[in-house]
């Protein structure tokens, strides 16, 4: 099985390398990108899409397909981390802490299970007491980071930013919570299932907006067709469509970041990281 996987990886790699040979040379003045594509974007993008930010217009409108599959790749990365690393097996050795006294119990018999509640709490071998200063400061900072992340997502079609960046910032705020408290706090606050659903939901929002455009009689991801559905100035409909798409990207990236971090850091056991 492993050998088969190796062969598949080698074949895919060879195929990709073979494909690279057909690319135009770096900075080739006769390549299609230099002849008409870039000029068209620079001259016509603002006029055609009514989006104030040229970069977003190219990324989310002209190349909406590309960005959609990028989101799918991020989703797949989270999924792969989950499938490869998640470990549901019970641990043989358990550690408990008696909360009032702070005494730590090491249970080697896998059948003996102590009731976790007010008296005892779960512990792990590499448990480190979390620091009060760090906890407090992170508690103050995390909401600001999250607001900033939403600002980056929402402002994506007017200024530098967008779904990927905003999603990464939002995800990093969740990771900060896991680092400053412990991983269990994060997993308790936001269930694993929720992360999974949100990762899929993000991709669904993106694709869903494209499909709605098709239902309205346009091409896939042709945002201008959304105009009857949204009240307001129809000139800005493409910017609004992009905003919806960016929100989807942001949700997917946030959830994928959290899934990847949680699974890698605790080797799939979701008990204690770092």
């Amino acid at each position: 099985m492993r050998f088969l996987g190796f062969i598949i990886v080698c074949l895919t790699g060879a195929l990709l390398l073979y494909g690279t040979g057909e690319f135009p040379d770096w900075g080739d003045p006769n390549s299609p990108a230099s002849i008409h594509l870039s000029d068209h974007y620079i001259e016509k993008a603002v006029e055609e899409t009514q989006v104030p930010n040229l970069v977003t217009a190219v990324l989310a409108d002209y190349r909406g397909f590309d960005t959609m599959f990028e989101t799918a790749v991020v989703f797949c990365a989270g999924l792969a981390c989950f499938l490869l690393l998640r470990d549901f097996s019970q641990k043989k050795e358990r550690f408990y802490r008696h909360t009032p006294t702070g005494v730590i119990l090491h249970v080697k018999d896998s059948k003996k299970i102590l009731k976790v509640g007010k008296e005892f709490e779960h512990m792990d071998k590499d448990w480190v007491p979390s620091d009060l200063i760090i906890k407090t400061v992170c508690r103050i900072l995390i909401p600001f980071i999250q607001i900033y992340a939403m600002y980056v997502v929402a402002h994506g079609d007017f200024s530098p930013g967008g779904g990927f960046q905003g999603g990464v910032i939002f995800g990093s705020s969740l990771i900060l919570l896991a680092i400053s408290y412990d991983l269990k706090t994060l997993v308790r606050r936001v269930k694993e299932k929720v992360f999974g659903i949100f990762a899929a939901l993000g991709v669904l929002i993106y694709v869903g907006i494209g499909v709605i455009c098709m239902f309205m009689g346009g091409n896939f991801l042709d945002y201008s067709r959304l105009a009857p559905l949204v009240p307001g100035d129809p000139h800005h409909i493409r910017a609004l469509g992009m905003l919806g798409v960016e929100i989807g990207v942001g949700i997917a990236v946030t959830a994928a970041m959290a899934i990847i971090y949680i699974n890698i850091v605790s080797e799939g056991r979701h008990d204690e990281g770092l």
Binding site: V128, D131, I133, I134, V137, C138, I140, F144
Partner: peptide
């Protein structure tokens, strides 16, 4: 304001990690 909050905390946590 944010640098005043985060920078000393980061230094503190790095020192903490070093001690541990």
């Amino acid at each position: 304001f944010f640098v005043f909050l985060s920078s000393p905390t980061a230094t503190h946590s790095i020192v903490d990690a070093g001690m541990r």
